[in-house]
Structure formats: structure tokens, C-alpha cells
């Protein structure tokens, strides 16, 4: 079964503790955090569970159909500070929902500005399959 593990720039439940922007950390702490991201990707590759991992640029624009012959309607904010902003994802193919949550917890434990677990909130969403589901006669 596939799950999307979403990281966020902002949004979601209240933070466990405050984390300043990474350019304000000690450089070695930045390295440690980056290394943990690489380690997680390698772990998921080696366990055969990684489908995809991508990071999203912080800049965003909302687009809407503008009507016949008209240009698309766009808006690029400002959005409320609390609005949800995804930062990237891991797509994993795992044996169980429990395993997906376990991986999400590992991602969440990435080191913060003090080298302590960040306790970042990770959003976990199951991906629909396109098979025919479980036959009812079983």
C-alpha cells in the first residue's frame, strides 16, 4: 500500500517547539539536518519502500479558469500566515499503515537547531489503488 508523507513549511497542528529558519542555525547543525534527509532516502531505498521523494519551492501561485478566451486568473497571495504550505514529500510503498506511520515518525525526528529531534508534524495520506478492490464474494 502506498502512502504520501507530506512535510510542511507551515500549517498543521501547533509546533512542538519553535524552530528558526535554517539559515539562522549553526552551520554544522544545518549539515546534520541535510544528512538526516539523505539518510532517510537511503534507508527507504535500501528497504525497497521508496517510490519518490521531492522537495517543493516555497513560492506558490493559485490559478483558476478565467472564462472563455480569457487568460487564467492567478493570485499569489498574500495568504494568511497560518495557511497550509507543503514543503515536499516521500511516497512510500509499505506493508502496513503502521509502517507508514513509523517512517513518518523517523522523518519527524530529523535534528533541529540544537541537534535535538525536531518533532515536526508529518501529514500521512493513503493513496488510492487502481485495482478493482477486494472481490465481495471472497
Amino acid at each position: 500500500m502506498r502512502f504520501l508523507l507530506l512535510k510542511h513549511y507551515r500549517g498543521g497542528p501547533d509546533n512542538h517547539h519553535d524552530v528558526p529558519p535554517m539559515d539562522q542555525w549553526e552551520p554544522e547543525r544545518v549539515d546534520d539536518h541535510m544528512q538526516s534527509l539523505r539518510d532517510i532516502s537511503r534507508m527507504l531505498e535500501e528497504s525497497g519502500e521508496l517510490v519518490d521523494a521531492q522537495a517543493l519551492h516555497e513560492e506558490r501561485v493559485f490559478v483558476q479558469y478565467g472564462g472563455e478566451g480569457a487568460s487564467p486568473v492567478t493570485t499569489d497571495g498574500p495568504y494568511p500566515e497560518t495557511s497550509d504550505l507543503a514543503a515536499g514529500w516521500y511516497m512510500v510503498d509499505v506493508e502496513s499503515r503502521e509502517r507508514a506511520l513509523e517512517i513518518a515518525a523517523i522523518v519527524s525526528a530529523g535534528p533541529d537547531q540544537h541537534g535535538e529531534p525536531m518533532h515536526e508534524w508529518i501529514e500521512v495520506r493513503q493513496v488510492y489503488t487502481d485495482d478493482g478492490g477486494v472481490p465481495t464474494e471472497d
Binding site: M22, D23, Q24, W25, E26, V30, E58
Partner: peptide, 29 residues
């Protein structure tokens, strides 16, 4: 540091973003 952080926010290359973020962190520390 401010300029490097700004550059990090604009690039679309992840390795470059990471490098510029670290530069900013070095300059601040």
C-alpha cells in the same frame, strides 16, 4: 547572510539552495 538567504529562497536547485542556506548560516555564526 541576508543576501545568501535571499538567493537560497529563489533558486530552484536543491543542492544550490542547501549550499546557500549553509553559507548564510556560516556568515551569521
Amino acid at each position: 547572510a541576508e543576501a545568501c538567504a535571499r538567493a537560497a529562497g529563489l533558486t530552484t536547485s536543491a543542492p544550490e539552495r542547501d549550499h546557500l542556506t549553509r553559507r548564510a548560516a556560516e556568515l551569521r555564526s
